[in-house]
């Protein structure tokens, strides 16, 4: 199979370039990560992140043929040759496919991603009905891979000001939790021209999410709450 790989090592003194490589691999039943591992076996200078190789740890998000994907759950047979692999867009490149995720993590931390409930803890569990728990479906499963946020034009322009789809989905995860008491504070935190409202609804995030989550919908629900409390 033919590949075009984004190569960059700041120590080499060379500018980033696209490397053409051919790999003898049968795509049947194999994922993109399998191919990257084979490529690395032949050239150990190729740098990328990976861990669980089953789509739950969120390490190996890359841009393949123009789309953000998780390499370990993207069938090789689904990609047209030459397969062009680049780092996630919109984030500083450290080397090859490795990006600096800190702008993404900073926005995640900014939404206070933890349950806030100041009441004394009961001796047993806090109760939550299955219906209340169902509100968290599609929100808590985020694996922080960054595929959605780095596919979002608003984040490319304002990585320091716009929370981005992943962070906003996490904000919704806590707003939606019947056990969380900080909804007002969380809404205050998002009510400004950039943090939430820079979402233009282009829905790249929905297309990019390897877990099938829908950040745009969550953002819509937060918008609704913001509008409601104004009235």
């Amino acid at each position: 199979m033919k590949f075009r790989l984004h190569r960059f090592d700041p120590e080499s003194g060379k500018k980033p370039f696209m490397q053409e490589v051919e790999l003898d691999i049968d795509p049947a039943g194999k994922m993109l990560l399998d191919a990257l591992l084979e490529l690395k076996a032949g050239d150990d200078t190729l740098a990328f992140r990976r861990s669980c190789r089953e789509g739950v740890c969120g390490s190996d998000a890359v841009n393949a043929n123009g789309r953000n994907v998780l390499a370990c759950v993207t069938p090789l047979s689904s990609l047209k040759e030459p397969i062009e692999i680049r780092p996630l867009p919109g984030l500083p490149v450290i080397r090859d496919f490795v990006v600096d995720m800190e702008p993404f993590y900073r926005q995640y931390r900014s939404i206070k991603p933890w349950l806030i409930n100041d009441e004394p803890e009961p001796e047993r569990e806090r109760l939550q009905t299955p219906e209340e728990r169902a509100e968290l479906e599609g929100a808590y499963e985020c694996i922080l891979c960054g595929a959605c946020t780095s596919a979002c034009p608003s984040f490319w322009w304002h990585p320091d000001k716009f929370v981005g789809p992943s962070g906003l989905l996490q904000a919704w995860r806590f707003i939606a939790d019947s056990r969380d008491q900080a909804t007002e504070e969380r809404l205050d935190n998002l009510e400004d021209a950039y943090r939430l409202y820079r979402c233009r609804g282009v829905m790249n995030c929905v297309e990019a999410c390897p877990k099938g989550l829908n950040p745009t919908e969550a953002i819509g629900k937060i918008r609704e709450l913001l509008v409601k409390r104004k009235v």
């Binding site: 933890w114 349950l115 409930n117 803890e121 001796e123 047993r124 569990e125 806090r126 109760l127 939550q128 009905t129 299955p130 209340e132 728990r133 968290l136 808590y140 806590f174 939790d177 056990r179 969380d180």
Partner: peptide, 20 residues
């Protein structure tokens, strides 16, 4: 230890009576 995780926010699935 499990109740503590619930209090921290772990989104356990629930039974009809609201328990873990």
């Amino acid at each position: 230890a499990v109740y503590e995780l619930e209090h921290m926010g772990l989104p356990f699935s629930r039974l009809d009576n609201g328990k873990i």
